[in-house]
Nucleic acid binder design. Structure first.
Lengths: 316, 316
DNA sequence: ACCGAAACGAAAATATCTTTCATGAGTGAC
DNA sequence: GTCACTCATGAAAGATATTTTCGTTTCGGT
């Protein structure tokens, strides 16, 4: 029913997916991210764990297995999937999370946005949700992968960024910023154009695919082409186990917040993607600071003319 | 099996007797209080535990016994003395304590991003800054103006959204979302096109200008045209006193975060603008819920085909 | 130096966690 | 529809970790 994960065509293996260090507070986010790729029983366990960290921390494997109506083996498997060596470590993390929640005393606004919410509530809830998304993303981001991606981007001859729909805006954002520090980047919006572009890439170039679902064919296809042409490939996705990672040398995971009818997934995935993209940008800017600084200054300079240019016309 | 302490008549019991439940974070204090009544080896254990909760939480009984040069039995005895049923529970508490200390240390990141910041710091700082920006924006947003803007958008025959550069991406974001709920919106990227579009507007139409500086001529000009043609005009800007507001019926203020060389203003202004735009969108969606809901569902439906569509074509 | 009491650790006993393996449910091919 | 196959799942065996037991050691007092 899921991705088949046959073999990787190019022979290169994606290093992404299973990050090395366990997550301390990013657990809730991780559960949401990984939930879709879990089996039913594992989901039950994950749900219990995310829903009541404190309570679960007090339980033994057997206890949690009984509570969720599964077996010890399943509990351990779930712990593994969440990135811990075993249940013991998950339990430790759970205790930590519980303590944080206790002291953090989170939040009044837990409910979804309703049709009849006053506008002030909408603002508060949206702001809160997006803040949450940012925190989750930051906590869940694999800095090793990020570092590798930054290194590749900083050294690239040219960079392509693929994204469709809302993700295309993020792709353009990255592109615009890279151009500002003197790097060559494109964000083709048309799938055909994207593939055409991808064919031009070779070793030393970088291709970035941005897709929340990880299964957007129009974005995977150009990445695959770039991958096979030898370019370094980076995937920014909310589903670290999805098809797109097959062709990705580095995988950067964005967080998946709960969505609702009035708050489409696109909203939080965009926030998450933008943070990742910003991190990439700043990381690259650091690496090539010597050349980036003057380039940035120059672009400011150039823009200054456009600001206030029409101000003299006010009275006309 | 456990609960054997019933048989202890008096004497020793008095020291730990004060607290029935395990200590949450007052562990260090407890160690100090109880230290005098401890034996030498127990003191060593207690010291280690109080000195490095995080480190000790990672150790097993045997590990901690070796570290302190004592035996497992002593470690367990110490745990009991500190008020826990056994070492396992002490360890859990330790993990919690470590997590608290960790999170408490979070707001240490007030400084700007430096060229030599490790990548993990970059992530933390960016996320923190953007969260701050969101909070500021939400706090500073005038809900009355927002409500009026929402009303205008919801009733508009058509809507134009003007923005240049990074702001154009925000404009497109709003446009894309409005289209999804069945509203007619455009975000011309070309200034000339923008003006051309603006000329077509009339009373009952809405024009939105998005500009951080508020003085971007290329954005002000089309808004002015729309304003003069009788359209309802909305300005989303970080400078509520700037030129753009001259031609705006409603002004929505975005927040201006501090910027630095490595963190251009575009970054936080974008975050801020997006929140405003999201608020507009959700507000509008609420207002026209009857027609928006089916439209949203339909666009989901239509997109489903594009996901994984190319998966079968892999080998082609 | 001797006695007694408490501290202490080695190792047995127990609880807990992890792995293995057989089974059955679900899926795709024919 | 049936068949072959994969994969999720839990029972139970196996491995670790924790707790208890118990004998030895240490230390203070006389």
């Amino acid at each position: 029913m899921k991705e088949t994960f046959a073999h990787v065509p190019g022979g290169r293996r994606a290093t992404g997916g299973g990050s090395a260090p366990p997550a301390p507070a990013a657990l809730a986010a991780k559960v949401r991210t990984l939930a879709p790729s879990m089996t039913r029983s594992m989901q039950r366990v994950a749900e219990a764990v995310a829903g009541d960290p404190a309570g679960c921390a007090a339980l033994t494997v057997t206890g949690l297995a009984e509570l969720t109506g599964t077996s010890e083996a399943t509990v351990v498997r779930t712990a593994r999937l969440l990135g811990y060596p075993g249940y013991r470590d998950l339990r430790l993390a759970l205790a930590g999370l519980a303590a944080q929640q206790q002291s953090g005393r989170a939040p009044a606004i837990t409910t979804d946005i309703a049709v009849d919410d006053p506008i002030a509530d909408v603002v508060a809830k949206l702001a809160y949700d997006e803040q949450q998304t940012l925190a989750d993303t930051a906590a869940g981001l694999d800095t090793v992968q990020l570092g590798a991606a930054v290194a590749a981007l900083a050294a690239a001859r040219r960079t392509d960024v693929y994204g469709i729909g809302a993700s295309n805006l993020v792709a353009q954002d990255l592109t615009q910023k890279m151009l500002r520090i003197g790097l060559i980047a494109h964000a083709p919006g048309d799938p055909h154009l994207a593939v055409t572009n991808a064919v031009q890439l070779r070793a030393g170039d970088v291709a970035v695919a941005i897709t929340h679902s990880g299964s957007t064919g129009d974005v995977i296809e150009p990445l695959r082409v770039a991958f096979e042409r030898g370019a370094t490939t980076i995937a920014v996705t909310g589903r670290p186990d999805s098809s797109v990672t097959q062709y990705a040398d580095h995988v950067l995971t964005t967080s998946t917040a709960r969505e609702s009818e009035l708050r489409p997934a696109a909203m939080s995935s965009r926030t998450s993607q933008l943070l990742v993209v910003d991190c990439l940008f700043v990381g690259v800017a650091q690496r090539i600071y010597e050349s980036a600084a003057p380039a940035l200054a120059a672009s400011y300079e150039a823009l200054a003319h456009r600001h206030g240019a029409l101000r003299a016309d006010r009275g006309r």
